[in-house]
Amino acid sequence: MILSSIPGGEVARRLRGDGLSLRLGPFTAAIRSPIASVAEGIAALYADNETLEEPGFRDFHLSVDASGGLRRWVRRQCRFDFDGASPFKPLPVAHALPILEWGLNWCIASNAHRYLIIHAAAIERGGRVAILPGEPGAGKSTLCAGLVGSGGWRLLSDELSLIDMATGRFIPLARPISLKKESIEIIRGFVPDAVLSRETHDTTKGRVALVKATADSVRRAGETAAAGWIIFPRFVPGAPPILERQSKAAAFIELATNAFNYSIHGKRGFTVVADVVETCECYRFTYCSLDDAVQVFASLALTR
């Protein structure tokens, strides 16, 4: 079943009960949470995802619970849990939805070692993937949301690029894109039909909102793709769009340092990164407007 075909009340009931089971790219997750904002957020952000109706194996069992006791009344908190483990301290209950998203990222990044997992956005066009690594503030997610929303690119992933260790191909995750601060307004303006979650204020990353992956990206989550470009974006206010070549050696170092589980894979990790870099054209991209970015990326897509 597709989540949007299940009534909202039923989604909330499953989340409060045994768990709502969703297919998320190559993974399956059973999610539990009694918190209304989580139910509302999931119903909106994962509307196109397939639900699993039969009991069976799930890759991850997650929950975001509201705290009981005194905390039920004063400054309510919530707690993320993955089978007894949690990367976060309890946080205000208003942060529950982003916490679920970040918690899910953490589960994948610290367990799914069948993939080389790179902290980068990955988008695809014409069968080729553009990998966008980027430090916080480089504009990676904004660029990704703009290109996917209005640039004709398919979303593979915003935070975690998954490379199959056996085949070297990119595996779509097609989960929501996390936007911070003024990026939220930029995307609202640039992609009028984007579906955004409610904003969450004062998180550790400031004000955040999540953008739903496009229906096309979710529907095609089974289609893997080959590496095409590695592009390091940098948002510079007022700058003209500049796409300049980057040496493969430098791209290798940056990709390897941005990989969560590079060292876990040892020599094999080195080979996989080297193969990806070898097949890619590598660039640095400075930009300030998404219109420019859409054009530059469109002409880039024609070159391969």
Binding site: D59, N111, A112, H113, R114, S263, I264, H265
Partner: peptide, 21 residues
């Protein structure tokens, strides 16, 4: 072992090998 749980077993082994190194 079915494929989905087998992956988790295999991934734990990858981590354990890294740890041993």
């Amino acid at each position: 072992v079915p494929e989905a749980p087998r992956r988790h077993l295999h991934e734990a082994d990858v981590v354990a090998r890294k740890h041993a190194r």
